[in-house]
Design a protein around this nucleic acid. Sequence first.
DNA 1: TTGAATTTTCAATATTAATTGAAAGTTGAA
DNA 2: TTCAACTTTCAATTAATATTGAAAATTCAA
Lengths: 165, 165
Amino acid sequence: MELNEAKETFIQAWGNLGSSWGINRTMAQVHALLLVSKDSLSSDEIMEALDISRGNANMNIRALIEWGLVFKENKVGERREYFYGEKDVWRIMQKIIEQRKKKELNPIVYLLDDLSQVENKNDEVSEFLSVIQDIQYFALKTDKVLDKLVNKDPNWIVNLLLKAV
Amino acid sequence: MELNEAKETFIQAWGNLGSSWGINRTMAQVHALLLVSKDSLSSDEIMEALDISRGNANMNIRALIEWGLVFKENKVGERREYFYGEKDVWRIMQKIIEQRKKKELNPIVYLLDDLSQVENKNDEVSEFLSVIQDIQYFALKTDKVLDKLVNKDPNWIVNLLLKAV
DNA sequence: TTGAATTTTCAATATTAATTGAAAGTTGAA
DNA sequence: TTCAACTTTCAATTAATATTGAAAATTCAA
């Protein structure tokens, strides 16, 4: 396989995988592009490389900056903005986990907390509460572990994983 | 809050959350409904409770059975099928992890394996390979941990999590 | 077998999400 | 200030996904 072909494959595949990861195709593609680009790229270069519109490029670059996966660079004497990607895969994982946790896990925690307030007056309610509380238990545990994960250094989790496997 | 109100809230919220979890709204709702239903329900009862069409109900019940989150029950002297949900929250987590791993993680592992085959003839390629291999490293680690997770008993992970936090 | 009850399929439709592109907004050098 | 370069916004369009509902297939008691 040739390098540019491999990069192209990576970008396309990362885009597809993004879909199942709750990240839209273009956002994942921009991320992949910047991940394998040696130099920072302008909006126009990104539009060109991925064959997408200006608006689409802009929105997804902003989203990636929001996520902390992409950064701006201002070149001296240049008006336009350039962008480069976070290259540290560990940090990339952290950021993605952080965002997915916010979007997918936190709402569950709040929901279950609310639902626990149901008046516990009979067996049927107890049974419902038991389900809710079981879910809550796992959700809170997962939440805590992921918090640690995004706050600690790479070795913490690597050691944990090694111990586990 | 009253029980039926709480159940209704749970079903609706679980449906919405399903979306961000890569599970479609109806599938998540059917799952939630069966999770908080004392008795098993027929297709018609599910259609009625969630106000969805026969086709929709059928497809999502099948998908849930496929995932191992819902089971059939045949009542004696009754033609129609009844369905009940997996109530063990630990097993539910296992099944969901199993499916998401299959859909989200495995493709990455295969992709990276492929991309590693790029001919390593110069520095630019080395740099690309380094990114790919970093991702591969984390992907494989995560893959292994999740494998353990779905094969071991609840205490294994709970202990691990406790140790970690 | 037959046929009513039930389940499954799938083309058509509806819903939701992503993308475009042009207009409006912003920026900073001259 | 002014104005061209550049960025952002957002209504309209397109694409992707989910849902419907009726027809076809299956099942099983009689």
